[in-house]
């Protein structure tokens, strides 16, 4: 099944003003949305819809009170959509909206939807670096350090759920929707990619007690490590709470920087994730500090060595 990746997450929030200012500062751009909703998008049009928590237009909430109300997956074409409808209709009610969007619940009880992906195709440069022994990544006189770079999230990267039964949840995506396991933390859960996306993971899950079911984090891809550092340090400067990072993960190789958010979930910047095709063989490890990251840093205020010698002014 040709699922491309997450197109849109829908949230029911209790402080819309806080969420809007957070998402704008994170780098998403507000785009037109239906009445009562606000839509914030990355450069390719993937993003978040916000509504008030009690908005009747929202799917029913999880009993845990998670603000995530719906995950919308984009698929390649109508044939993929038809295949998903046929497969999932075998054992559950699948609603079909006038525009063809399919809606149902996964085996963990999360509300999910499928539509032909609305992602805009991006044609943008990668981060360009110079490296001895390699051809220059940037031509002569092209500057790498641009303090004013926009550093906007490019596309929705991945979702990480808290689930009470990791195997049940994972098997739904693997068996029914043909997601592929790229790697697995034995004591947390598998990293999954859908068939039409080579990213190391679009979906990950962490096993938790039932009362925790919800969203651990959601991530957007940045141009590269420099944009990730720049965007994250701007967030810190504005007073936002860094949760973890910057650093670089091992599984997936993606650079990461996670922030708390008023959406009741961590929101991550990531960059330079591994791609895998069907030849890849999954690795297995227990999650622990050594396996979760190659290295970890923490932001501090800008500082410069130097100044006059001791005793001089």
């Amino acid at each position: 099944m040709r699922i491309v990746g997450p197109d849109e997450l829908v949230f029911g929030v209790d402080d819309p003003a806080a969420c809007r200012s957070f998402l704008a500062d994170y780098g998403l751009m507000e785009a037109p949305a239906p009445d009562g909703a606000h839509f914030f998008e990355a450069l390719d049009g993937t993003g978040f819809t916000l509504r008030r928590r009690d908005d009747p237009a929202l799917p029913a909430p999880l009993r845990t009170g998670s603000m995530l109300r719906l995950t919308v997956w984009g698929v390649e074409d109508q044939a993929s959509l038809d295949a998903i409808e046929a497969e999932l209709s075998r054992d559950r009610k699948v609603d079909k909206a006038a525009d063809g969007t399919l809606r149902c619940q996964d085996d963990a009880g999360f509300e999910i939807a499928f539509r032909i992906s609305t992602r805009r195709k991006l044609d943008l440069p990668a981060e360009m670096i110079n490296s001895p022994g390699a051809k220059p990544g940037r031509p002569a006189n092209v500057i790498g350090a641009n303090q004013d770079a926009e550093a906007r999230p490019r596309t929705l990267s991945h979702i990480v759920y808290f689930v009470p039964d990791m195997d049940k949840m994972a098997n739904f995506y693997i068996d029914r929707l043909k997601f592929v396991v790229t790697d697995k933390f034995n004591n947390a859960g598998p990293f999954l990619r859908p068939q039409a996306n080579w990213d190391h993971h679009c979906l990950f899950m962490i096993q938790t007690p039932e009362y925790m079911q919800g969203l651990e984090h959601v991530a957007f891809h940045m141009q590269g490590p420099t944009d990730l550092m720049l965007a994250g340090s701007r967030m810190v400067k504005k007073g936002y709470e860094s949760f973890w990072g910057p650093g670089r993960h091992k599984f997936g190789s993606n650079w990461f920087w996670y922030f708390n958010s008023p959406l009741g979930t961590h929101i991550e910047y990531d960059a330079d994730m591994d791609l895998h095709d069907d030849e890849w063989e999954a690795r297995y490890a227990d999650i622990q500090p050594e396996t979760a990251q190659m290295f970890l840093f923490e932001n501090v205020e800008k500082w410069t060595p130097g100044g006059p010698p001791p005793g001089k002014k």
Partner: peptide, 25 residues
């Protein structure tokens, strides 16, 4: 080690009726 605010001094939910951890709500 999880810090709770989503921004400097912001430790409350929307209607300020409860304390909210902005890591996972």
């Amino acid at each position: 080690r999880a810090r709770m605010a989503w921004k400097k001094d912001e430790f409350m939910n929307g209607d300020r009726s409860q304390i909210m951890c902005s890591a996972h709500g």
